[in-house]
Write a protein that binds this DNA or RNA. Structure first.
Length: 591
RNA sequence: GCCUCUAUAGUUCAAUGGAUAGAACGAAAGUUUCCUAAACUUUAAAUCCGGGUUCAACUCCCGGUGGAGGUACCA
């Protein structure tokens, strides 16, 4: 029984009435006061019908009398500070020690099925830092939801059609001379991205040239032959022109190979990938049906709209006057197809907060179309990644490329390790280590920040390896493993051997943290917030480092207190590793 | 204009309505016969402004100010 429940039972006996869980507030006792845990009694005054001091004293006396694990108390105003017997702490540690997958629940077939959509790239250019945040958040919350017992399907919608990809195709056709990833040894997504950039540059030149002939910006844009050719290509694609389809398939496959490489480096994957080219007609079908049923209306130019004035929004375009789909039309189709495929209980879209409005409207429209699942859509909305001088803009070339960033992190890890003369034991596996450390730093840097806040990323100040960083936590784990290797590991197999030893404040703090782990995971799942776990693992590592610095853990002679310290170390390592797994970060065994 | 998010040490981040707001980086000073010094110990340093609710407010409410995003044929 956990401590909250235990106190609740006692209060029930004391006051002869049921006590709601929400009234039991427990926190770690502040270090200025004597005690281990503090019960906040203000919330209980209604039940005790006495003042804070009297209530604290009354509860303290009752607990002292009826619970042998509570050995002392002191009451200061409405704060009841309780001191627990050593046995209480030892028992907690013993219990944690017994469980292999401590804190992690197994998904059951009867538990909710949750679809998590993330990454969602366009196929005309490589992934950038914004995608990295998206991917890390999406992967992490998937893992967290799994660990709390949900069944999770990780999915991705690839925007593989539209004018943007036609621009790359046209550009490659005009200026590519048959370049392929093989011929030029370029990563496929970068190669295609280069042609997209080339298109935009040529387009700009063309506009500039026509403007000098006295046309306005808008006239110049309308007359652009490049843009007309791109539009023509889109029409050909929609009419399934074989040659166009062939180029499209070829170039998209280059991009997919490139993306796959980046995903693999990041250590993430998907259970099911949807392609917009396969889902976009589905949405149109539902819109037209909605129009026939009088849910939507048509304007004179033939475009179809939803009236959202009763919902407090402006009207929303659903099909253009030329009958082509817009973004939201496609999302309606994709959502429906996914429900057909999985009958999900919940679908979580990991998409930036710039699309809050879009997802609000998407739920409304699905509801209007009569899809019950509309109320089970969740937009996991996270903040933008900005650079010191503002937003990343592809047009201005201020995009931080994902592959470049990852490589830079790995190089930094190498540089730093070599400087410090680390990784000696690793010899032939060094590159693997640099990768774990470099990626760990990047992932932790991003995930430790509350998702709905914007991140300012300064590429010049590369991400650190000291302080509140992934490397610090990895390092703590590695030290623990080192201690365990050098100790008699059979000790760790002795379950429940610990009793009646003196443990100090630091040790209690660590045990308290360890005992919180399951609650922390649940909290991260409830709030869809990996940063809760990131900050928790840091606290644990920090606490352990302080403990480690003040205690001798290894000596030739093994006694009870050292067994205790080894068990404590072992379980700290276990929880750090489990926590990092939920964040999608690897831990090395040595470094 | 309207809507949403956001504001904490010089900087980057924490803080289920609870006690004297925690860390890290940077700055100043220290700790290696000992299990990995990518560590540890000190010191200085912060809740945007004005009201309100509460025994108790960084946290909730109202009004300002600064920043970001959105707001009908981009995705």
């Amino acid at each position: 029984m956990n401590i909250k429940e235990l106190i609740r039972q006692n209060l029930k006996n004391l006051y002869a009435s049921a006590i709601p869980k929400s009234l039991i507030k427990i926190q770690k006792t502040k270090k200025e006061f004597k005690g281990d845990l503090t019960l906040i009694v203000f919330h209980l005054l209604k039940i005790s019908k006495k003042n804070p001091e009297q209530t604290s004293k009354e509860i303290g006396d009752f607990l002292l009398k009826n619970q042998s694990i509570i050995i002392k108390y002191n009451a200061i105003k409405g704060f009841l500070n309780l001191t627990f017997a050593q046995k209480y702490w030892i028992d907690i540690l013993n219990n944690i020690h017994k469980i292999d997958n401590y804190g992690i629940k197994n998904p059951l077939i009867s538990n909710p099925l949750i679809i998590v959509e993330y990454s969602s790239p366009n196929t005309n250019k490589p992934l950038h830092l914004g995608h990295v945040r998206n991917i890390l958040l999406g992967h992490s919350i998937s893992e967290i939801l799994k660990a709390t017992g949900n069944r999770v399907i990780k999915t991705n919608i690839v925007n593989d059609r539209g004018i943007h990809i036609c621009k790359s195709m046209l550009s490659w056709e005009k200026w590519g001379n048959g370049e392929t990833p093989n011929s030029s040894k370029k990563k496929g997504d970068h190669l295609v991205g280069n042609y997209y950039t080339k298109f935009n540059n040529e387009y700009k030149k063309e506009i500039l040239a026509t403007k000098t002939k006295g046309l306005t910006q808008k006239e110049a844009e309308e007359k652009s032959s490049l843009m007309l050719e791109a539009r023509e290509m889109l029409r050909k694609w929609e009419n399934k022109d074989p040659k166009t389809i062939h180029i499209w398939e070829t170039m998209n496959n280059w991009v997919y190979a490139g993306f796959e490489e980046t995903y693999k480096t990041l250590g993430i994957n998907f259970d099911k990938i949807y392609y917009e080219s396969q889902t976009y007609t589905e949405g149109r079908k539902h819109i037209l049906k909605g129009f026939e049923n009088g849910i939507f209306y048509k304007k004179n130019d033939g475009s179809i709209w939803a009236n959202l004035s009763h919902d407090g929004f402006d009207d929303k375009l659903l099909l253009r006057s030329d009958n082509t789909s817009v973004y939201i039309t496609q999302d309606i189709g994709t959502a429906k197809l996914r429900f057909d495929d999985y009958s999900f209980n919940k679908m979580i879209y990991v998409v930036g907060n710039e699309q809050n409005h879009h997802f609000h409207v998407l739920s409304l429209l699905l509801n209007k179309l009569g899809f019950d699942f509309s109320k089970n859509l969740v937009h996991f909305s996270y903040g933008m990644v900005e650079l010191p001088d503002g937003k990343m803009k592809s047009r201005e070339g201020t995009i931080v490329d994902a592959d470049d960033l990852i490589n830079e992190m790995i190089q930094n890890a190498k540089k730093k390790s070599d400087e410090l003369g680390k990784l000696k034991e690793y010899a032939n596996k060094k590159n693997e280590l640099y990768k774990i450390i470099g990626l760990g730093a990047l992932k932790y840097f991003i995930l430790k920040i509350d998702p709905h806040k914007n991140i300012v990323f300064n590429p010049k100040e590369s991400i650190d390896f000291n302080g509140n960083t992934g490397a610090f936590i990895q390092y703590t784990y590695v030290r623990i493993q080192s201690i365990l290797r050098k100790s008699n590991t059979e000790i760790l197999n002795t379950k429940c051997v610990l009793k009646n030893i003196q443990i100090d404040e630091k040790e209690k703090n660590i045990i308290q943290l360890l005992s919180n782990f399951p609650e922390i995971i649940q909290e991260a799942a409830d709030y869809l917030n990996p940063s809760i776990i990131a900050n928790y693992t840091y606290d644990l590592a920090k606490e352990y480092n302080q403990f480690y610095n003040n205690h001798t853990i290894l000596r030739e002679k093994i006694d009870m207190i050292r067994i205790f310290r080894l068990v404590l170390s072992y379980n700290t390592g276990k929880v750090i590793k489990a926590g990092f797994k939920l964040l999608g970060i690897d831990v090395p065994e040595k470094m």
